[in-house]
Design a protein around this nucleic acid. Structure first.
Lengths: 239, 239
DNA sequence: TCGCCAATTGCCACTGAGTGGCACACTCGG
DNA sequence: CCGAGTGTGCCACTCAGTGGCAATTGGCGA
């Protein structure tokens, strides 16, 4: 068969998969806070010690697929050609590439369940937020090293990265909240839509859309800033 | 004297202040992770049980002044006049009002020390991030109830709030990192500057500013989006 | 000034996450 | 088949956070 990796690695990987699957199942059915690590380890048939050699925390096992996605995005950032264009676009494309690089069987379903956990449990949500924060710091380092980003401490650069995180989180939350299937194509579309909504966001007024939902005279977007006319895309994103 | 509050309240408040002061001192000198709650409670001369009746977590006592600031900002949002203008501006002004409403003796110094803790300790930083997230959710509810925000689940609205958080965090981080004194006037200025840098952030290119630092031909800001010419302010914000 | 009521506090025991140490078992290489 | 080295299980431990209950203390009427 395809027993390429040295068999010792495969065991490790197998343990990891069993833990993730058990965790998503238990957390999903009974709630993150109502499942102890001892229970999880018992279900997955590993010792607690082994669990902490595989994952750094109870939260991490719940979000491991999500972290894989970002890892793939960072990987893309490492290998992508370095053309000069807006940082937000570069990051968006890296995320899209990361989405395209997900291969493992059933990743989309695991990812969707992970996101559901993060919206259901404060502890997981906090972990998720912090993870994104640290990951974009790492992305900044790559951008500086490979893409010639000369001022990684410029406020505008830091803000741009925060905006990337925000757009990504909104897109993935929207994707995971869809009723029916949540697959790669939809995630890609939702990601594009969220990033296109960034510009219009700057000018949203507090009294927007008493009539905005799917109307034509919607979006009291004030034209002073950001005249990007892709409001249609943003409006279509509205649920 | 001015013994207006029923004396029982004052005791409680006093305990709170002692805890915060002890925490900032101990955490600041020896590191958040190297101080146990037992030590802190021992120093402040309260039982651990009382500590958890005053604060929800070890992290919270470290960030209590920061949380006070947001509480003041939310309060301002509750009472401010409800004119129709961009959501980001409304939130910025609420934050500025919150800054203006800080009165307790030595708040600026405590706030600065809190921020330092959050940059030094991952646990505190994560707590801080999540707190901001939850607080802006609360702000959204106020905006919906008082300011006529009709579509609080519109992606653009959610993005706008995320951008507010980002600008705020960048400004306060910059403020706390200043060498000399960090006072109200500087925090106000840094906040304004960070919010003004939001627009230009959208168009930052990856190869920005090989020569950008304080130059005139700086900021490879691509004029396609966001032609706001307040790049000067943003550039001045650069350290 | 005294004493009752209610809120607050301290103490104790407990759960559950996360860690270090050590002995055992397994895989891989010869 | 056998050593070297890595991975795993078990045990004991620290520390954050919680619930219960008794003791204390302030508020307040008599």
């Amino acid at each position: 068969m395809s027993a390429r990796p040295p068999l010792r690695e495969r065991r490790k990987q197998r343990t990891r998969e069993v833990l993730v699957e058990s965790a998503l199942d238990l957390f999903g059915r009974r709630g993150f806070d109502n499942v102890t690590l001892d229970e999880l380890c018992d279900t997955a048939e590993v010792s607690k010690r082994t669990f902490f050699r595989t994952f750094a925390s109870k939260e991490q096992v719940a979000m491991s697929t999500y972290e894989d996605l970002w890892a793939a995005a960072l990987q893309s950032l490492e290998t992508a050609p370095t053309v000069e264009r807006p940082l937000i676009d570069v990051m968006r494309d890296s995320l899209l590439a990361g989405i395209g690089a997900m291969t493992s069987e059933g990743w989309a379903d695991r990812l969707r369940r992970s996101i559901h956990l993060s919206t259901a449990s404060p502890a997981v949500e906090a972990h998720c937020l912090y993870f994104c924060h640290r990951t974009t710091q790492a992305a900044l380092a790559v951008l500086e090293r490979r893409h010639g980003l000369a001022a990684p401490h410029d406020v505008r650069v830091l803000l741009a990265m925060d905006i990337v995180v925000a757009a990504h989180q909104r897109s993935i939350a929207r994707w995971a909240a869809r009723d029916g299937i949540a697959d790669r194509a939809l995630l890609t579309a939702d990601t594009r839509a969220a990033f296109e909504a960034v510009g219009p966001s700057l000018a949203i007024t507090t009294t927007i859309t008493a009539t905005a939902r799917n109307d034509k005279a919607d979006t009291a977007v004030d034209a002073r800033k950001t005249a990007t006319p892709d409001d249609r895309a943003a409006a279509a994103f509205d649920h």
